[in-house]
Amino acid sequence: MIEFHGVEKEFPGRGGGAAVKALDGIDLNIGRGEIFGIIGRSGAGKSTLIRVVNMLERPTSGRVTVAGIDMNALDAAGLRAARRGIGMIFQHFNLLSSRTVYDNVALPLELAGLKRSEIRAKVEPLLDLVGLSDKRDRYPAELSGGQKQRVGIARALSSEPKVLLCDEATSALDPETTTSILRLLADINAKLGLTIVLITHEMAVIKEICHRVAVMEAGRVIEQGDVFDVFTAPRHPTTRSFVSSVVGAELPDTLVERLSAEPLPGGNPVLRITFKGALANTPIISQLTRRFGLDLNILHGRIDHIQGAPFGTLVVEAVGSAEAVQAAITFINVNNLSVEVLGHVPANLRAVG
């Protein structure tokens, strides 16, 4: 649906200084009907990337196609027509304070020259879709942040786009409202078959609704793939940093302080066992205890679901002989689970989280 081919974007440097490269050779394909997340820290280039889709920012080089249309090659009239098929919502809503909810949603249709009856036929179902039929005559100042974003979504859908671009659409919202907006977007994706591109700096947002994700850093895509695969086996250090706090892979500070890289006299190794997919229900702890005579002290752990599939990590202190621990590690690997030795702790360490 959306393809980036060698896309680069440079901005002039301040005061005649060196140009700033915001996008550096982006190659990316976004499929029709999927929810695609793009994540990165501030300055990574993610907002610039989404703005080259509808040519709010023209790439310095490379090509962007949407539904087979080369966006770079369009003249002004062609670009206006193409943009009607690309909706966009923003972090700060961009509503007109002097217009009611109904009139904000109707604005793009008025500008397109539709009759009042045609506008009404489009706007009223959209207000119902986003749950704001009872707020149609309210003004933005009378709405909550979540309600304002729902108006923005309805307005973006008024031209019946095939693509919806979401630029940090939930960043200004509280967690509960964020969840409701993300569920609305997922519902719209399912009902309308809309392709949604979602820009965020929060991995929890990606986890909630995205099918695939691209991670950006310094204008480049450093990792991409199915959300489940990226969450359960991140390859790049930046991706691991994003993922760790969401899936519970980040260790509590109290445990980190006690970990030693080298074995301790009378101490025990600390293992992190990773469960995913169908293997998440494997009773591995009881098996290790019975087979190898180990006592496993649980120090930290979390079980979650990503894209409907279970995933979890369990950090344990393994109390037993070195031979038994090594045999247990081999057994875990043979059973297609993941295990790593995080370090060593003094004996009798209590659970820390």
Rank of each mutant, 00 (worst) to 15 (best):
N189S: 08
A190R: 15
T238N: 10
R240F: 05
D229R: 03
I188E: 01
A190V: 12
F228V: 08
M203E: 05
I196W: 05
C210H: 07
T200L: 07
D229Y: 03
F228P: 03
A186L: 12
V197F: 02
S241L: 11
H201A: 12
T239S: 14
V205N: 03
R220Y: 02
T195Y: 03
H211L: 12
H211Y: 12
R235K: 15
L192K: 10
A218S: 14
F242G: 00
G225H: 09
L194I: 09
V243M: 14
Q224L: 13
I196T: 02
L192R: 13
P234G: 11
T200C: 12
L198W: 01
D229S: 09
G225E: 10
C210I: 03
P237D: 10
V221W: 04
T239I: 10
P234N: 08
V205P: 00
V197M: 09
T238S: 12
V215F: 01
R240P: 05
I209R: 01
K191I: 12
D226R: 01
R212H: 13
V227W: 01
D226V: 07
I199D: 01
A204M: 08
P234T: 13
S241G: 15
A204C: 10
V221I: 15
E208F: 06
P237N: 14
E217Q: 14
V227T: 14
F231S: 00
Q224Y: 12
G193Y: 08
R220V: 12
P237M: 15
H201G: 11
A190Q: 15
L185Y: 11
Q224V: 10
R220T: 13
A204G: 14
E202I: 07
T200F: 14
R212F: 13
A186K: 04
I199R: 01
H236L: 09
I188R: 02
V215C: 03
L185S: 05
K191C: 13
